[in-house]
Amino acid sequence: MGVFRTSPIPSLLKDAGFMPLYVRRRSSMLRCWFRTHRLSDSVPCVSILRDSRSQVYVTRPSLPKPFGLRVANLMTDLSIAPTLV
């Protein structure tokens, strides 16, 4: 694109016609969740559901949250009914 190295990345993405990184990340998370959740008896789905039910992440917010819990929070933010069983 012929820009300086110090150009802000969000403006470069907009000029190039790409979505912002946080939107792409959210979209990828939701796509992965719905693909995995389609097969509810699969090993990845069972491990995602098991990890997201743990109360450890509620009582200790400094721990990195598991994928299932992050997706559930994202669904709540987007007003989508969470599909955690």
Rank of each mutant, 00 (worst) to 15 (best):
R5C: 02
I9H: 14
P10Y: 10
S11Y: 13
S11W: 13
S11V: 06
L12D: 14
L13I: 06
L13Y: 12
D15S: 04
D15P: 00
G17Q: 00
M19F: 02
M19Y: 01
R25Q: 09
R25M: 01
R25S: 06
R26P: 03
R26M: 06
M29F: 10
L30R: 11
R31Y: 05
C32V: 08
W33I: 00
F34Y: 11
R35V: 09
R35G: 07
R35N: 08
R35L: 12
R35M: 07
L39T: 12
S40K: 05
S40H: 08
S40I: 07
S42H: 11
S42Q: 10
V43F: 09
V46K: 15
V46S: 03
I48M: 12
I48G: 02
L49I: 06
L49G: 00
D51C: 04
R53Q: 10
Q55K: 04
Y57K: 06
Y57V: 03
Y57C: 04
V58K: 09
T59E: 04
T59Q: 09
R60L: 00
R60E: 02
P61V: 04
S62P: 02
L63G: 01
P64T: 07
K65P: 03
K65T: 07
P66F: 15
F67H: 05
L69Y: 12
R70Y: 02
R70P: 03
A72L: 14
